[in-house]
Every structure is written in C-alpha cells, then in structure tokens.
Design a protein around this nucleic acid. Sequence first.
RNA 1: GCCCCCGUAGCUCAAUUGGAUAGAGCGUUUGGUUGCGGACCAAAAGGCUUCAGGUUCAAAUCCUGACGGGGGUACCA
Length: 564
Amino acid sequence: MDKTIQQQIETLLAEGFAAAQAAGALPPFELPARIPVQRSRYKAHGDYASPICLGLAKVLRRAPMQIAQTLLQHLPAAPFIGHVEVAPPGYVNFTLDDGWVAQQTPSILQAGERWGDIDTGRGERVQVEFVSANPTGPITVGSARNAVIGDTLASVLQAAGYAVEREYYINDAGSQVRIFGESVLARYAEALGVEGVPFPEKGYRGDYVVELGKQLAAEAGDRYLTMERKEAVRAVARWAVEQMLESIRVDLAAIRVTFDSWFHERWLYERGLFDEVLARLREGGYVVEHDGAVWFRSPDLEKDAVLIRSPQVIPEPSERPTYLASDAAYLWDKLVVRGFRRAIYVWGADHHGDVPRVKAAAKALGLDPDRLVFILYQLVTLLRGGEEVRMSKRRGDFVTLRELVDEVGPDPIRFMMLTRTVDVKLDFDLDLAVEQSDRNPVYYVQYAHTRIAGVLRHAQAQGWPLDAAGDPALLTHPSELALIRKMLELPEIIALVADNLAPHHLTTYATELAALFHAFYRDCRVVDSHAPALTRARLMLVRAAKVVLARVLHLMGMDAPERM
RNA sequence: GCCCCCGUAGCUCAAUUGGAUAGAGCGUUUGGUUGCGGACCAAAAGGCUUCAGGUUCAAAUCCUGACGGGGGUACCA
C-alpha cells in the first residue's frame, strides 16, 4: 500500500486548492505542511473530515463555509470517494464509495499478513532498546511492561517501513554487578559449608542467589575460594551474569519477546569507546576537572555539572565511572558507530531525570539530540484480590515475569500491558487476567478470530470451497460495509502508532474490529445453501476479517487461535 | 524545595495529538438464538472532563495558578 486513505484525501484537498487558485477562485496562499484529515466520529459526517477551511479563514479573510464551497467545486474526482459535502461551520466531509469499499475485500485478503503495511519509514534505520534490566536478578513484572511496549513498538515500526533493530543493553560494568558477584560468592561459600565469606551489606537476598551459589558449588567445587578474593568476585560475577542473562532470555521468550542484539556495557570500555567519547567531550570544552573528579558540563544544564568519574572510585578499566559516562559512549555507538538514524529508549518513568543529561551529552558530542527518543512509561502495580502486591527485592516479595507467565499465560500479559497510554500507571489485576469471562477484555478479540475459524470449519464441512473467489459487489449490508471500513483503517492505525510511538491504540482498534465482526455475525448469516453466490462473497469477507484480526493480534505479540 | 506523569460516567480507561454531539469495557436495568461456537449481540441509565483564570474561529487537549494522587532528585541502574 502506497498511501493511506487519509493521505490520499490530503492529496485530493491539496489538488483542489491548487486548482481553485489556478482558476482564480481563491487568492494565492501557502497550504500548511500537513492538511488535517481525520476519521469522522459520526456517520452523518461521512468517513473522513477535514477542518482545513476553518484554519484558512483568517489567512484568506473569508468565511470558512465559503472557502469550503469554493474548494468543493475544484476538488478532483476520485474513485474511492462516493460523496463529498460541506458542513457548517466549514468542514469538508468525505464519504467512501460503498462499492469501492466492498471491492477492497479481495485486496485485503490477498495482502494477507502484510495487510496494513505502509512505508512512512522509507527504510530508515531505527533501534529500539528496551527491557535492559540489570542482569542481577530475574525479570520482574515491571520490566514486562517495558518488554511489551518495546517489542510491540518495534513490530509496528517494521510494519510502517522502518528497518528496526531490537536491542537489550546489559549493565554489566557497574558496582551492582560487583555486589551481585559478592552475593553469589557468599552463597556459594555457604553451599560449600565454608565460613568467613561475608555477605555484602547491600547484597542480593533473593532465593535465586542461594540457588546460584549451590549451582556454582556443584559445578566448580571450591575453586573460587582458593583464588584471590577480588579476582574471584569478578569471575563469579561474570559467571552469574551469564546465568541470569540466560534466564532472562528464556523468560522474555515466554512472552514472545526476542532481541536482535545484546549489547554489553563493558564493551564500551573494552573497545575504547568511552575514552574516545571522553576525549571528544574534552575537545569540545565540556569536561571540567576538579579535586581529581571529572565532570561533564553542558550549556544546557543550568544546574551543576554531572559527574563522570569520581576520585573515590577505583578507576578499574572494567568498572564504569558513572552512568553518564556509559550513556554518552553508548549513544555514540548507536548513532555514530552503528549509524542508526534514531535510537528509541524505553525507560521506566523513574528514570525521567536522566533524559536531559543524555540529550545534553548527545548535543555536546555534536549530535542532534532529537535522534534520541525516550519513551517513559509509568510503573506497574500488581493487584491480587483487589489488594496491591507490594514488590521489593526481598525474597518472596516480588513477582517475577516467570511466575506471571505460569499463572496467566503470555496473551493476557501482552494485551493488558498495552491497554493504556504509557503515561498512566498500570494496575495489573492478576485475578482478572486469569478469569475467562466477560470481564476479561483479552479474550474478546481472540474469540472473534476463533469464531471465524469456526465458521470456516462449518463451511468446509458443508462442502464449500474456502478459497473460491466471491463477488464483492454482493457485500452491501451495512454491517458488512462497516466491518470492511474498519479493516481499511489498519494502515492508518499503524501510522498513528508509529508516528506517536503509542502502541496502546492497537488494543482499541482490535477491540473495535472484533466488535464489528460480532455485529456482522449477528446480522449476516455466512453459510446459506439457498444463496450460494452470497455465501461465497461472505466467506471471502470472513477470511479477510480473519487475516486482519490475526495481523493485529500478531502485531501485539499475541496468538490468533483457531480454537479456544 | 525542584523536576516528571496523572486527575474524564459508580469503577478501569479511550478520545486519531487543537476540531462538529466527549466514547468503550466492567458494574446496574431490560431484551435477544425452534440458526455458522451465547467467551456473543441489542437497548436504557450514567458527564459543569478536579477547580479558577487565560490563549482562539474552536480547549478534555495548549499556557498560568491552586487542589489531589504517583514517581524521581544525580559516583544505584
């Protein structure tokens, strides 16, 4: 699909204005870069409406209605438009041609899983970096929201014609990893029955650390107790991080989240990127040294400078100085070394304070800060029995993604995590998620898909060929046309989600689409031996609806079941 | 103190990013299949979009200030 209907109407309007000006009916003026065209909320307003004339009234010094009427006279005809009219106070309303709408059914069917694809991205390379949870523990429910948002966004961007790469950034160079290593080492010594290995004060107390200790004891014997402690901590940390990463990989795969690349923070130091970036910052005059500490100072930062390296921290090459240092080197790697046009970060809202600093670092490095895009999602609250489940890192007190998947399955997690804008706190109701009832929105959409599968099974059992072409001209019932119109909207939804990085629109669309299918199902009997031609047409429609439902479900990372 | 997000129907949330009559689900009330899966459909009721100003042809949406809830505040990530 080259252009969405919305875009085609934009073009029509632009041509109409050009024609009106050429004919002298309107004075010369400059059109806005984007002509607003929206889907009408009411049937009486047609399918699409443009308020463009309202905005032009002041520029043209004419009444909006008059502009609209003049425009109408010069608007070129288009096969997909059935009717255009002007409505007070100056809207231009477009109604799609019913015949044309019906004719789109075979096209949708033919596009199949590619239906909805657009090309606003034009192959632009975009990286979506998400989850990136510390490899010092299992993935929690909070990170699950991150995972679902990031993965869905990546899928939609791909559908919108971007060349997308999914990345997980592994924070494996900081002090947390060292403390993790110390924690595991202590549990390992315990497992071996050796005393005198202290558990760090702010160590990781989860059961999984005890398990790691046992596992290490079984695998390595007392090897790590015989070497120098510092070295042992480092080696154990490295091993434990690998174990956690593997478990993280498995847990995320369980909700159908996978990555194209896993980027280690320590690479930034091992490969000399940090030094390179620090040198660049220094050259630009953005680095200040004071009392042995290294600071980053940007003209954009009104407050104090940001610490890059402190004199107290032993500057071990494998240990990161401060997070800004890593972030600066990392963004350089994204935008310059690997050359992504845009780098999207999916971050919990609790990190919002870092956004200006990272952007400032980009600017100081001579890069356009707008190439870094931050999606800040509000945090997740887990409800069980109407009560908030308090989550802390203490043992037994936080819910892992693994537990959640075991309890509710991947589909409710994917759907629920997408239902809201990223800007609002999400209450994840565990009881509702498992409940298979009217109250659970998750199954509504999947049920529509299943119902279609059921109809097709029935048809096949009656001896109808499923792949026979039907005559779309027979699809004239209002419920049929409403359903097709909704299917035609998918490319615009993909554009909407991709442009605004707002994946929640998918859930709304999917629900609306399912609702229109259910209404159609009520109004129109599909398989009817007394009306073979109509049956063939409706089987075609139903198959097309199945394709679109499946596409939306797959974009959300959900299953499109044949049976439930 | 400062920074960020939120405040919309009884509840949980939408509203195509400044457009016409603010929409869904749940809950409540009422109705629907001698039919392809009733995990469905239809109808009713429910609103001063927290409050007060402002910007403009037009504000739930933008600006200012209150009030209320959540998060952050830099050598944790």
